[in-house]
Design a protein around this nucleic acid. Sequence first.
DNA 1: TGTACTTAAGTTTTT
DNA 2: CTTAAGTACA
Length: 767
Amino acid sequence: MPDLLSGLNPEQLRAVTLPRESALILAGAGSGKTRVLTTRIAHLIQTGQASPAGILAVTFTNKAAREMLTRLSAMLPINTRGMWVGTFHGLCNRLLRAHHRDASLPQLFQILDSGDQLSLVKRLAKAQNLDEEKFAPRQLQAFINNCKEAGLRANAVEAGDDFTRRMVAFYADYDAQCNREGVVDFAELLLRTFELLSRNLNLLTHYQERFRYILVDEFQDTNKLQYKWIRLMAGTNGCVFAVGDDDQSIYRFRGADVGNMNEFLRDFGVRDVVKLEQNYRSQGSILDAANAVIAQNKARLGKNLWTAEGRGEPLRIFAAANDEEEARFVVDEVKQLHREGTALADMALLYRSNAQSRILEHALFRAGIAYKVYGGLRFFERQEIKHALAYLRVAANPDDDTAFSRVVNFPPRGIGARSVEQLQEAAASGLGSLARAAKAGAVAGRGGTAIAGFLAIAERLRKASESLTLPELVEEMLSASGLKDHYAAERDGQDRVENLNELVNAATLFNEEFEVGVEPAGESQEDVAPVPGTHQQQVLAAFLAHASLEAGEHEAAAGQDALQLMTVHSAKGLEFDAVFLGGLEEGLFPHDNSLNEDGGIEEERRLMYVAITRARKRLYLTYAGSRMLHGQPRYGIVSRFVEEIPAELCKWIVLPEKQAWASPQKSAWDKPAWGGRSGGGDSWSSGGGRAPRADANQYATAPRASFETSRPDEHPFAIGANVRHAKFGEGVVINFEGRGLDARVQVRFRTEGTKWLALQYAKLTPA
DNA sequence: TGTACTTAAGTTTTT
DNA sequence: CTTAAGTACA
């Protein structure tokens, strides 16, 4: 039997072999967190302290769950199939399916993803004639989710004013509607499970006795409800092994509460806090940079990463004139590294927001570099796929109004807004769902005939769902619904048709795995009461749940060596030899929207910390003087996070053709990069006539001090700088010309319009 | 009702 | 720049 414990450092060993009591593991980035977690599980099983069935392990992403299972089966000769390892949402789904009756849910309940939820909210708001100005659907959606994540039903929410009262009332209506339709949103999965267990003592005791060991990954990302959920599951006798890193808490926007770490220490009487501070991933300079940045945060539990490795290379910093140049630079460096032997898959391009990927993709495509984008438009979120899934959902559950209204007239079959309105009225006045209203003949005339046509399709699919295998059903749906024909006839519909075919493949794959029992959604043996619905219908329900919960972490084409593109958020937990972090501009990273929230900057800084610590050997930080946003150039200054990195860790990169004018006297930024703004043309960004660049390794480098004076952001009133004028108030610099005493800046004031001001006379102060 | 056109608005991050 | 929503017409 392999020795699980060999090779662990003393802290890791201590964590893995802790006695049966609750513990908190503060695991820094790259400190072997996943290894500790999986080894702990393996150790518990190997020493007979726990059986595989007695372990509950919770992660935040499906990827992390899979990773854990893979590593476990490599460590132990056990079948991991029956183990409860998954995301909060996945595990809750499993519990609710198994006990749907106790949870007052139909066995084939559907899961709404964020988009589905939003359209339901919109539909309801419209039906109630809510003023969209005052009650924006997104705001209502956020309100509902926040309430649920705090564990509050509508009747438990305290409303101090009329506005809130109205939202609470809407929340109640929303929940009622979900119940009528038999659908469940993400937050509901958790809340419903929590209520199920807290109301059903038998069930609770059953699971508490079963799961004697609970392990939680990324504990800093748990929200209030998830924490309550863990506490409930653990009971008084449970043993919770929580692993987390407060410095990597980056999901506050969706309710994550780092405070849970302190509550955990208190509530569980934790005596053992183990700090894992030795980093096995990054070389010295990278780690020093990360430490320096995160040290600026005040609210920390305190932890300092160190490495036994050498310093390695300095961080490379590149200031591009614009986003295109930034992309070109990145592509050239990637090429060079690739030539030198780094696999594409060992390199990553990270960015703050998904919108930044487009221009990178464009440059990569032109350069013929294989790349893979994670996140962004996910497979299961594409329009055509959502339509297809909606047909399947109608087949699984005719009362699913969201699905019904999505496809009742798609492809167009002559059912207009008026008819749908009539259906909604009929449904609201007692008939229940849209489908029931339709069957009852709520719409007469032409619309009624068309609706009958749709009902026929729905009924045909429902019948088919009883007997056909999943892929067969999908095929049948694609033709019966007319979706395939519709997109095939569309001008640019080829991609969509291909995606629909891809859906058949996905169904085939899912079906095979389900039959083998890999997919944990269909719980086995003791936990499942005999349920209605044929086997095929259960496969369908599992597939639909899968589509919602796993929005398509599409695996890269197998074996393909491809450059990795993703947001910093989705990079958490991953590591690469070389990392390019782009868009390091104020307003983008840290993002503007974070500035107003309290604690926002610290959260952004943690995000920066996560980004830096993804790199093993080489880290590039780039930013652009101007960037296209909403079709308009937007001028940026370097992110404060770059400034927080000690200069001696950095090497500034200057393109060869720029050396001539990158001197302290004459600024590279005096080039009319934004001159086109007032003139109307944009000759610069087209980049025509630019000489081919030398190889990446021939870049000249400038010591930071001398280069700094030539950066626009060193100018006190550089493009993009926020300024205050005694008379005109606050504004932003959008252009400037001249130098020294002659310098004039153009400022767009918040209230006074745009003005040219001579620096010598105008009383401008940085704001 | 459906299509074609114009206009407005939007993008932080995700289970 | 892209998408959603709004308007005019067949």
